[in-house]
Simulated scan of single mutants.
Amino acid sequence: MTLVAGVAGQPIAHSLSPAIHGAWIAAAGLDAVYRAFGPADAEAFAGLVEEGRRGALRGLNVTAPFKAQALALADEASETARACGAANLLVFEDGRVRADSTDGLGLMAALAEQAPDLDVRGRPVVVLGAGGAARAAAAALKAAGAEVGVLNRTVERARTLADDLGVAVVDADATGEAVLVVNALSVPPAIDLAALRDDAVLMDMTYRPLVTGFLAEGRARGLTTVDGLAMLIGQARPSFRALFGVEPPDVDVRAAALAALGEAT
């Protein structure tokens, strides 16, 4: 019987997850498919989860705007998902829904790959934003031993995140001391890159475009940069294991994702 899994979000046509998981499925020779699902609204997403409960789906990766709802609909959730207040992975088994968040694993994997000399332990890092992506980043970096500061235009949202996760709220001046600045906003950040330390690392959780203006400006300053595609692939690896029960094969899924993205580098 063909295993059916996929990614659910709205909009979803831009997602590179089918290209990534599809490449692994093909390389592993699995009788499986990984599809994009675009529920129109919360009610439709809840219906999709019910299909999973009935056995029609093995599991789902979940993206905006359904991550918080995914956690709320689950019967059980990992400590990480609860800390983030959101889930990007649902696994269906025997009528039950298990929620997890692999975004933090993806972030740390991306840093290890593209900024291998960075050590955040005991050092200041700044996360820009206070939404679900920022929560995942802050939780993962705190777990890695970093001194995490959250910077957001709406201070009250930053304070809520900080109180939930036990991190700090900071102002723009804090970026000047940070060894890592992570953009978890859906818009270009308004920070002065000229004020950053010369060995700072910049990461953007967005992957469209692959080299955002934030990363391009950082590269022009000679800073190490980490792109959102590396994070997407990093979070997909544990998702693939959970969904299909096997290790992702050693194939170049970044090339497959770049082809789908329409970029060559």
Rank of each mutant, 00 (worst) to 15 (best):
V211K: 05
A109H: 12
A81R: 10
V181D: 00
S101Y: 04
G131I: 15
Y207D: 11
R197K: 03
K67Y: 05
D94W: 08
G228S: 09
A72G: 06
D119F: 04
G245E: 12
A257D: 03
T224D: 01
V126I: 12
A40S: 12
R96Y: 01
N88R: 13
A40K: 06
F240Q: 12
V253W: 01
A28T: 11
G52P: 01
V201D: 08
I191Y: 05
K67T: 07
P65N: 10
G47A: 05
A133K: 15
R197D: 00
G9C: 12
V150S: 12
D192A: 15
T80S: 03
V167A: 11
R157F: 00
A42Y: 01
G59W: 03
R96E: 08
V33D: 09
L193K: 13
F37Y: 02
A36H: 08
L71F: 03
E263F: 03
K142N: 00
N88W: 07
G85R: 15
S101E: 09
T265W: 01
V201K: 14
L118A: 05
A184P: 02
P238D: 02
A242E: 14
A144K: 14
L3H: 05
A64D: 00
K142A: 02
A99E: 05
G245M: 13
I12E: 02
A264K: 14
E93P: 04
G149K: 14
L151C: 11
A162G: 03
A28H: 11
G59L: 10
A139Y: 04
P11E: 08
E93W: 10
A83R: 15
A27W: 09
G222S: 07
E147Y: 07
G245Q: 13
F37M: 00
E156L: 09
V246D: 07
L210G: 09
L71H: 07
V91G: 09
L107Y: 03
T63Q: 07
G149P: 02
I20L: 14
G129R: 13
P249N: 05
L111M: 05
D119P: 00
A158N: 03
K142Q: 03
A87Y: 03
A77K: 13
G213T: 10
A112V: 06
T154G: 08
V148R: 13
R237V: 02
L89Q: 10
A259V: 11
M108Y: 02
R197W: 00
L232P: 00
G131E: 11
